[in-house]
Each structure stands twice: as structure tokens, then as C-alpha cells.
């Protein structure tokens, strides 16, 4: 079942459609995300498994001979809506599905760092602060004042740039409204090819409703992610439908 067909659970159901045919894998979203959310620059020990990556871009290789050779897959928290795997497992309500926006919230200040949510997440969208985040001397001046840096020993993840939602909410409140409407997360703003469309799945006139046929990764798990993808390339659809990786009998390039 597509996220577009579901009945509304929350007043807003923010989500994304990412056009994989437009993504060139430049990584602007990755850096913009890190800068926006006060992610510290990688220390020497940091790699793709122990760093803080709220948004990652995976490189996918076309296993079939036809079509484009490579696709780049930006992946952040998929904001699962049904049986959200990380929400049910957290022992102390540090993870919740927001009642207003449908965003899966992660509260670093409540988190005790058990990492159960990380094992529960099928998309590996969560990062753990293995050590204290640190910036070179003086670089604290470049921290975003609307985002609290996380401390060591807690899990963090994409929250659709909550600080920007807050700013939109504040601006709306000046005019007596609580509804922030559509705002722009950092990755959406940074994407040079406009591959990411951000919107509200509840809005029948919105950008997401007009995004045409979309698919999600690991739909079989039934978690109804609100971040969905679009592509005209068949091999990507086929790959997304298949759960679990099969070991390559031999390397994919012959």
C-alpha cells in the first residue's frame, strides 16, 4: 500500500519523493545536512560505519546490462508510519511519532544509548555518537543556533530539519496560526538538480500528490515509509522490490 492512499493519522504527514533519475550523487545534500544539524566534521577514526550520517548517499550498480550503469540513492530516516520499528522498541520514549507532523522524533536528551532502535531500523538511518563530538578550536562559531549539538552516547537521526519546522511555526504563529505549512529542509534546499521534493502526503493538491508513481525500499516489511522514490529505470524498481541482498556469486562487473 502506498503512503499516498492511507488515511490520515496526523494533521500533517511530511514526506519526500526523491527522483533517482535526477540525483547525480554529488553529495551536496550530505554536507548541507551535516552543516545544518551541527554534525561535527569527521575525526580521523571516522568512516562510513561509525560516523554521524543523518543522510547518506549510496551508490547502486545496475546488475543488468541495460540502462544507466549507476544510480545514487540518498537515504535518510524514512519516517515510517506504521508499526514504526524504532518507536516501539525504545525503552524510555526517546523515539516517538510526532502527533502533528508525522515525523519520527528522536530525543537525544532522553536517549540512554542502548542502540536498540539502531538494530530495529531496516534502513540503518540512525547514527550513534561513539565519542564526544568535537570541532576544531574556534569552529563552534559556525554552529547553527537553532539546533542543539548532541552529546556522546546517544543516537541521532534525520528529523526533517526540525529547526526549520520550528522557524516556520514561529513565523506562522505571528499571524495567529499553528500550522507551519510546507517548509524546506536543508537537503531539499541544497540539491542542485532538485531531485528531492518535500511536502505533505495529506495535501491532495501538494507536490507529493503530483509526484506520480513512486516506490519505497523494503515495502514488504509493511512499515509504510513516508520517504518514497521515483525512477524511470526498471532495474531500480526490481532492486527495491527484492528484500535482502544476495551475495554476489561474482563481482557485478564482468
Amino acid at each position: 500500500m502506498s503512503a499516498t492512499q492511507k488515511t490520515s493519522r496526523t494533521p500533517r504527514r511530511y514526506g519526500m519523493v526523491i527522483d533517482l533519475d535526477r540525483c547525480t550523487g554529488c553529495g551536496a545534500c550530505v554536507i548541507a545536512c551535516a552543516a545544518e544539524n551541527n554534525v561535527a566534521p569527521g575525526a580521523a577514526r571516522e568512516n562510513d560505519r561509525n560516523s554521524i550520517s543523518l543522510l547518506r548517499v549510496f551508490t547502486l550498480n545496475n546488475p543488468t546490462a541495460a540502462g544507466r550503469r549507476t544510480a545514487f540513492l540518498p537515504m535518510m530516516c524514512m519516517q515510517c508510519e506504521h508499526e514504526t520499528p524504532c518507536v516501539t522498541v525504545c525503552p524510555q520514549q526517546a523515539v516517538e511519532l510526532d502527533v502533528l507532523s508525522g515525523i519520527v522524533e528522536q530525543m537525544p536528551q532522553r536517549c540512554l544509548g542502548c542502540r536498540y532502535c539502531m538494530t530495529a531500523c531496516p534502513y540503518h538511518a540512525r547514527s550513534f555518537n561513539w565519542g564526544d563530538p568535537s570541532w576544531p578550536a574556534g569552529m563552534e562559531a559556525t554552529l547553527n543556533p537553532a539546533v542543539a549539538p548532541r552529546m556522546r552516547g546517544v543516537v541521532e537521526k534525520c528529523d526533517f530539519c526540525q529547526s526549520r519546522l520550528h522557524a516556520a511555526q514561529d513565523a506562522a504563529a505571528v499571524n495567529g496560526s499553528l500550522d507551519p505549512g510546507i517548509y524546506t529542509p536543508a537537503c531539499v534546499e541544497a540539491c542542485p538538480t532538485q531531485a528531492i521534493t518535500f511536502g505533505d502526503w495529506n495535501d491532495p493538491e501538494g507536490a507529493l500528490a503530483k509526484s506520480g508513481e513512486t516506490f519505497a525500499w523494503l515495502e514488504g516489511l509493511g512499515t509504510q515509509p513516508k520517504v518514497r522514490y521515483r525512477s524511470g529505470q526498471n532495474w531500480l524498481h526490481e532492486m527495491a522490490e527484492r528484500g535482502g541482498a544476495a551475495p554476489a556469486k561474482e563481482e557485478r562487473h564482468g
Binding site: V87, C90, Q93, A94, L112, G113, M151, G153
Partner: peptide, 18 residues
């Protein structure tokens, strides 16, 4: 756990589903 000093939160704010 990453934050042992906060482990007691589980008793104060328990998530009954977990």
C-alpha cells in the same frame, strides 16, 4: 549503554510497548 547516568529514565518514562 552510552549514557548510564540516564538509565533510570526507563523507570521514570517507561515505554510500555518496548
Amino acid at each position: 549503554v552510552g549514557q548510564p547516568l540516564r538509565a533510570w529514565f526507563t523507570f521514570w518514562h517507561p515505554n510500555a510497548h518496548s
